[in-house]
Design a protein around this nucleic acid. Sequence first.
DNA 1: CAGGATCCGGCAAGATACTG
DNA 2: CAGTATCTTGCCGGATCCTG
Lengths: 119, 119
Amino acid sequence: MEEKNIEKYHGADECPITATIDVIGGKWKPPILWLLLKGPMRFGELHKTIPGMALKVLSRTLKELETDGIIIRKAYPEIPPRVEYSLSPKGESLRQIMTLLSDWSREHIMGEVMTEHSK
Amino acid sequence: MEEKNIEKYHGADECPITATIDVIGGKWKPPILWLLLKGPMRFGELHKTIPGMALKVLSRTLKELETDGIIIRKAYPEIPPRVEYSLSPKGESLRQIMTLLSDWSREHIMGEVMTEHSK
DNA sequence: CAGGATCCGGCAAGATACTG
DNA sequence: CAGTATCTTGCCGGATCCTG
């Protein structure tokens, strides 16, 4: 029965790729993660670095990432409040993927060129 | 002044990660690409393999992928019509990324540990 | 300073019917 | 067989106001 081992997808969420993209994708998660890969940042710092994103969206996105175990939220009981976000080990494990995604866009979208070896 | 070289993002589209995810992400692109990585497929074949996706969504998604140069649409002038979709070289260049994304989900989301060769 | 609560609008996705 | 046309809907992201 030479069946190719092709799985059926009744829902998009059954695809392993989709599962990961749900975690790192969406409109604002990539830039946030990209920044946190360089080091921890405070809430307001993120807000200033990504001016285009509304506050609510930022906080909700951070909460999602925290729920997924990608980032760690550390609140200091001070006045005024201080909250710092950093990558968890699980988040760190995305570094290679993020780097590849970034490289790919530079090579195939931004139009630059690096090795025109293919053909 | 030890400025960390952090770029500002006024829009999400300035992030290189986002740029790539726009191409391979979205709700249905991952399963389609994942299937095409295994070989060319016809329209109806894709439709049957991904029952959850509406026809309109499939055709539009394929068009998007074609526009982005990721896949190649080949129509045979026959009756009845036959159209085959396959990955372009640019699409092929995503193989490593797709594989990593898939592996990551299996290791960190689905909860399975496979090769553990890393490290 | 770091957010929560609300309300709203747009676009992507879904269902169904029709066509070359 | 391989789509397109049309209508509806659901969710995401945005703006504004409010709170510990």
